[in-house]
Amino acid sequence: MKRRELLATSAAALGLAAIGTGARAQSPLKVGYIYIGPPGDFGWTYAHDQARLTAQEHFGAAVETSYVENVPEGPDAERIMTQMALSGADMIVATSFGYGPSINAVAQRFPNIAFEHATGYLQEAPNVSLYGARFYEGRAVIGTIAGRMTTSNKIGYIASFPIPEVIRGINAAYIHAKKVNPDVEFSVVWVFSWFDPAQEAAAAQALIEQGCDILMQHTDSTAPLSVAQERGALAFGQASDMTQFAPDVHLTAIIDNWAPYYIERIQAKLDGTWAAENVWLGIGAGEVAFAPFNDRIPAEVQDEANAMIEAIGSGAYHPFTGPLNKQDGSAWLAEGEIADDGTLLGMSFYVEGITGEIPG
């Protein structure tokens, strides 16, 4: 089993009992996935669906997986999860932050079903497990690359929603770009969508018009990369290797590798040992990985990035290590102090040096 990083609200701390299936008959274990977008987005949902397919191949006839795509957060999510439960699902995997209230409401009505919530924050039922990835680790790496490679010293960031995960990513990228290039400036455009190719393309165009020569994104379509390819800007993909959509300018991408987690959790359900957990995994566990580096990244910058990946993965370096101040100049982390997980999970502020406001 891979190394785990259990948060304070782990299954052991909560005293939760294992929810298993016992010895199964011939019928396969049924696992239903709820997606916020389409599997063809080549971003967040694509990464989850690739992991689902990998798990399906791993277990063969012992497991039957299915999914429903483009499920809005709110009543529709609760309705579809209820339908899955009534249709015989043994495990339900909800793959978006905003599904929290829905998954907990359904879980309380179906205590024998195992529920898994990606990037979740609510654990109100004993059969709800939370899991996430430390994407900020990857954004520290691409921030370093961007800081080294920008010639205009202006980096554009296309952001989805002002939730802690996205804010953490902006901060991590900025901190590390600034470390290697004190003249760096970040421009953040909020599109208030996870997947909206038209809005993402418009944001990319606007950032390039403002002089940004490198683009980052926390949205799921390949539209920003297509714009970057057309305009000659450099860019980073999101959640999967997007090189094919911008072969000349795609520098690398953080890859969301959910497959090992899904295989492990499905196996636990098959074995009758599944129990609710709260885990947050990163580079060290293989959940955060990287697309191949573009040859346009200088060799010495690739070496620097790889050294950071190794240091983060081994635990020798944490991307949020002081001294760091908040945007208003107030002290946050002292020299050598490391941010605690609670602060990172609830992050609602920019670090010093980022201009603009986080939308309310």
Rank of each mutant, 00 (worst) to 15 (best):
R3C: 15
A8L: 13
A12M: 13
L14E: 09
L14T: 13
A17T: 06
A18D: 05
A18C: 07
G20D: 00
G22R: 04
R24E: 10
P28N: 05
G32Y: 13
Y35N: 03
P38R: 10
T45C: 08
A47I: 00
Q50H: 14
L53D: 03
T54Y: 10
E57Q: 09
H58N: 04
F59D: 01
F59I: 06
G60K: 04
V63D: 01
Y67V: 11
V71H: 02
R79W: 11
I80W: 06
M81Q: 07
A85R: 12
L86S: 14
A89G: 08
D90N: 06
I92M: 03
V93T: 15
V93L: 10
A94Y: 02
G98W: 10
S102F: 07
P111M: 07
N112R: 12
F115Y: 01
T119H: 10
G120Y: 01
E124R: 15
A125V: 05
N127R: 05
L130H: 12
L130W: 07
Y131A: 08
A133G: 15
R134Y: 07
V141K: 02
R148L: 00
I155F: 03
S160K: 01
P164N: 02
P164T: 03
E165G: 15
I167L: 05
G169V: 10
N171R: 02
A173C: 15
I175Y: 15
K179Y: 12
K179P: 13
N181F: 12
V189M: 09
S193I: 09
W194F: 13
F195S: 03
E200N: 09
Q205P: 13
A206V: 11
L207T: 06
Q210H: 13
L215P: 08
M216V: 14
P224Q: 05
V227D: 07
A235S: 06
P247A: 09
I254G: 04
I255D: 02
D256M: 14
N257D: 09
Q267H: 12
K269S: 04
T273N: 05
W274L: 12
E277A: 09
G282R: 00
I283E: 01
I283P: 05
F293K: 00
N294D: 03
I297L: 04
Q302C: 04
A305R: 12
M308A: 11
E310S: 12
E310I: 14
A311H: 03
I312V: 00
I312A: 06
G313T: 01
H318Y: 14
F320Y: 08
G322E: 00
N325M: 09
E337T: 08
I338Q: 09
I338R: 11
G342A: 12
I358Q: 00
